[in-house]
Amino acid sequence: MKTYILEPISQEALEYARKHLDIITWDEKDPQLSEVEAIIVRANTVDRTFIDAMPKLRIIAKHGVGTDNIDIPYAASKGILVTNTPTANSNSVAELIIGLILDCARKITYSHEACMEGLERNQPMFLSGQEISGKKAGLIGIGHIGAIVGKRLKGGFDMDVLAYDPFLGREKTEAMGFSYTDDVTDIYKTCDVVSVSVPLNDQTRNMISAGELAMCKKNAIIINASRGGIVNEHDLSQALADGEIFSAAVDAWVVEPVQKDHELFRQKNFVGTPHNGANTKEALINMGTGAVDEILRVARDEPTLTNLGLRVK
């Protein structure tokens, strides 16, 4: 099956694709799009103009989870499947979230920068952090990633986990061992750590802004490793500057790659990473081979594991 891989993927996944598919890679000049039947995409935009350039296109396989870079309704209208790899990077993203929580709580990055600038003594008070063990974590969204984060915070740090996910509901949330709330403001008002793991849409855009941040505890840590725009970046910067919350970390930005002069980098109680949650060897292999497998299912006229176009019909 003629497959165009739009961006670099892991060497292992690339070899797997070469073994099973007739591929065009991102570095080839003037690829013959008219013959392409499948594409594998990471962050590139797949809009209607690009889709129309491939009249034989049968499947758009997302290398990852989020598909806001793909015009799914248009693809569905043309009978083109859109798939993703919803669990392939879950563990890697969850581990980054936990790492960011610890970084924020113990001021690890800030301490590193202070050492590089020079210190007169060990354990300066301005680098004093806080423990997370035995405290309360709030999870907004309990998909694959949120569930892993909650279980590890509960099991590893004895945290009380309060979750909000109207799509999952109370019964399934409590079956995971988490407390449930149907009012997201309960999380802002009572939790020491708030981690958001939801897709970006009209309902979630700017869902954590000045009003929500003002509800938070003074020692609160806010983590956004899902999609840029869910946490309002300007309001977050202001809340950090004003001491409304203890610390925050962002791995997903409104404009990517994030620019070095972003206002959040002026805040010492902030940690930023470049949408790096899924950037591990294991996740890259899983996402790449998972995308190839979905294309192979189409080639064999088998059902794909995911079909995101069904959501817009």
Rank of each mutant, 00 (worst) to 15 (best):
R297Y: 11
S197C: 04
T289G: 08
I222A: 14
L153S: 06
D158S: 03
P86G: 11
A147T: 09
K154Q: 09
L81V: 03
W26D: 05
G79N: 10
A210W: 08
I140M: 15
G228T: 02
T3R: 05
L96H: 07
K78F: 03
G169A: 00
L200W: 02
I222F: 13
Y110L: 03
R205G: 09
A210P: 01
K136D: 01
V65A: 14
I51K: 13
E7N: 12
R42V: 05
G146Q: 12
T87Q: 08
S133T: 12
W253P: 00
T304I: 03
R205V: 12
S133E: 12
S90L: 09
I140L: 00
C216R: 00
T25W: 09
D301Y: 07
R297C: 01
G288W: 10
I5Y: 07
E263F: 02
L100A: 06
S209G: 09
G229S: 02
L81W: 05
K56Q: 13
M159G: 10
N44D: 08
D251A: 00
I230S: 05
T45I: 06
G177W: 06
K136C: 15
P73V: 00
F50T: 13
T87L: 03
E15C: 06
V194H: 15
G156Y: 08
R58E: 11
A283E: 09
V255C: 06
W253L: 12
S128M: 13
L14A: 15
P274W: 11
L310T: 13
A105M: 10
S128I: 07
A225K: 00
K217M: 12
G272M: 02
L96R: 06
D186A: 11
G134F: 09
E113S: 03
A38S: 15
L119R: 06
S111L: 13
I59T: 11
S111D: 08
S92M: 02
I80G: 10
L100F: 08
L296F: 10
L57S: 00
K136Q: 09
C191W: 06
T25G: 11
L168D: 03
M125P: 04
Y74Q: 00
G228E: 04
V198K: 05
P86W: 07
T83N: 11
R106T: 00
G228K: 05
E244A: 15
D158F: 06
D183A: 02
F270D: 12
F126D: 07
R42Q: 05
L127I: 00
A299Q: 05
P124F: 03
P199L: 14
G169S: 06
A88L: 09
T67P: 01
I5G: 12
A75Y: 12
G64R: 14
D192K: 14
I230Q: 01
M287G: 06
G141W: 14
L100D: 07
L284K: 15
P166M: 10
V198G: 02
C216Y: 07
M215R: 06
